[in-house]
Amino acid sequence: MDAILFLLFAAIAVACGINLVVQTHPISSALSLIGVMASLAVLYLLLGAEFMAAAQMIVYAGAIMVLFVFTIMLLNAGAEHKKGRSVIARLLGVPALIGFLGLVSFLIQSLLPRSEEVRFGAFTGGTAQAIGKKLFTGYLLPFEVTSVLILVAILGAVVLARKEI
């Protein structure tokens, strides 16, 4: 069951990822990215990261991507125009990507120690309680710093989005 779920959702993630890259309309790309995020959330669940799976859907798919979709709709962005691209880039791009991925896969398989099989339920430390405890004890300073970062981002967005600039 674990293998079937992994293969299914990994396939969906890769298909949506490829769709993100090849589609010319931004809305199609955005929806593909949402597909990637949703299937990654399922994989997080398989890895025992239940809180992160929910956070992935709430924060990434539910907030960040809504912003993207909202912006695309607001600007009424149409499909991308084909511009003259470098021939070399077009010919070399896909083989280079495949070569890079092959190299990374080979490195992962050969350099890392033989990793264990992933079983659903083998790791149950990803509950909201465990994450909360860790976040507010061991990682309190980074947590506070990110809140300042968010504040800065809000101010930046407000300043940028004002009428006169």
């Binding site: 890769v14 990822g17 993100l20 991925l101 990374v104 890392l112 990793s115 099989e117 992933v118």
Partner: peptide, 21 residues
């Protein structure tokens, strides 16, 4: 019935490569 953890890492690499592309 199960897959090794490496496969997750390879999936991660594939998605990262697609992102670069």
């Amino acid at each position: 019935t199960t897959v090794p953890l490496n496969w997750y890492l390879i999936l991660s690499a594939i998605l990262f490569g697609l992102g670069i592309a």
